[in-house]
């Protein structure tokens, strides 16, 4: 039949033209390629991270690949790592969503000679060479609990707003918040934990309900970044500014107004851009073999000499933003 012959030839032409002409070999003497993955794209925290990473990249003259999950599929990070592995990058720097879930994919990358470092949140120790540590889950959990206790004078009810009930890193923090609470603050009580789906408006509704359902509530702890301004707006609308304290993990830029109005008392965060900057510096040094297992210190560009604990490079203690110092930070 004429038409089918025509179609077959249509099919054959691109195949014949395209397939043999392909040339995928890498040219020699190319730049070092560092692949850098956030837990999720479109999240202001990791956008700040990326900014720091790009600064380090232009200092060091390496190539950066930035990609990450755009949805809530827990398998996405693994897939991106496996794709990078076959793409042939030199170093992978990743903020892990699943400690164990991603380790298999990272180990496979290591077997192919790709260096792996982690930042923000770690995988298992055998699946990476160094972890750029802004604060351990224990450090974050305890800092949040201690600050809540300070705001409430170590007494009374408090509630937590988290991103989703399945968010692994926040569940780690909640574990340490709970153990710190049990061991140090017997007069405080965690009355409820609510998810806000990482949405500000949902956090606002949840906070409104928490405040009015628990009349003795003294403090709300918002442990994902959109929850802090969301809960602040709820407290403000309820007219409970100061009566219900609010602290959380978030960016200064999203909370500046509420801090100054006295609705939000404290926001805890490290210099996020520095975290991205340091992760790239470490990735570069590991690839150049200027940073090796067993080293005690690491010189990280503009950040100076940093301490290494085991295989963790410590960025420094988290900052506490209050209405007095929030204007000094521009992220």
């Amino acid at each position: 039949m004429k038409r089918s012959q025509f179609l077959t030839s249509l099919l054959a032409v691109p195949a014949a033209l395209l397939f043999p002409s392909c040339n995928k070999t890498d040219s020699a003497g190319r730049k070092l390629t560092i692949a850098f993955m956030p837990k999720g794209k479109g999240n202001s925290y990791f956008i700040a991270c990326e900014k720091g990473a790009r600064e380090a990249v232009s200092e060091l003259g390496v190539e950066l690949l930035f990609d990450g999950p755009t949805n809530t599929d827990p398998a996405k990070q693994n897939e991106i790592v496996e794709n990078w592995t076959t793409l042939g990058v030199d170093v992978i720097a990743v903020a892990c969503e699943n400690t164990e879930g991603i380790s298999g994919a990272l180990k496979k990358a290591q077997q192919k000679g790709i260096k792996v470092v982690t930042y923000d949140s770690d995988t298992t120790q055998d699946a990476r060479s160094f972890f750029v540590n802004q604060a351990t889950p224990q450090g974050i959990g305890e800092a949040l609990m201690d600050e809540a206790a300070r705001l409430c004078a170590e007494e009374g009810e408090f509630a937590i707003i988290t991103a989703t009930l399945t968010a692994a890193n926040m569940n780690e923090w909640r574990k340490f918040i709970g153990s710190r609470l049990a061991s140090k603050y017997p007069k405080m009580k965690l009355v409820d934990t609510k998810p806000c789906d990482d949405q500000k408006d949902k956090a606002q509704s949840e906070a409104t309900n928490l405040i009015s359902a628990n009349p003795n509530l003294k403090c709300i702890m918002a442990i994902c970044s959109p929850a802090v301004p969301g809960a602040a707006e709820a407290i403000k609308q309820a007219g409970k500014a100061g009566a219900v304290k609010l602290l959380g993990l978030g960016l200064p830029s999203e909370n500046r107004a509420y801090l100054k109005e006295g609705v939000t008392q404290s926001v805890i965060l490290w210099r996020v851009a520095d975290l991205g900057y340091l992760a790239i510096q470490v990735a570069n040094a590991v690839a150049n073999k200027s940073l090796n297992p067993g080293d005690k210190t690491f010189k990280a560009g503009r950040l100076g000499e940093l301490e290494i604990e085991g295989s963790s490079i410590i960025l420094g203690k988290p900052f506490l933003f209050t209405k007095d110092n929030v204007d000094q930070f521009d992220f």
Binding site: D197, Q199, K200, D201, P226, E233, E254
Partner: peptide, 12 residues
């Protein structure tokens, strides 16, 4: 209803 717009406000 609030002084900020969250780009995720329509999800779901």
């Amino acid at each position: 209803q609030s002084p900020q717009v969250d780009p995720k406000c329509g999800v779901g």
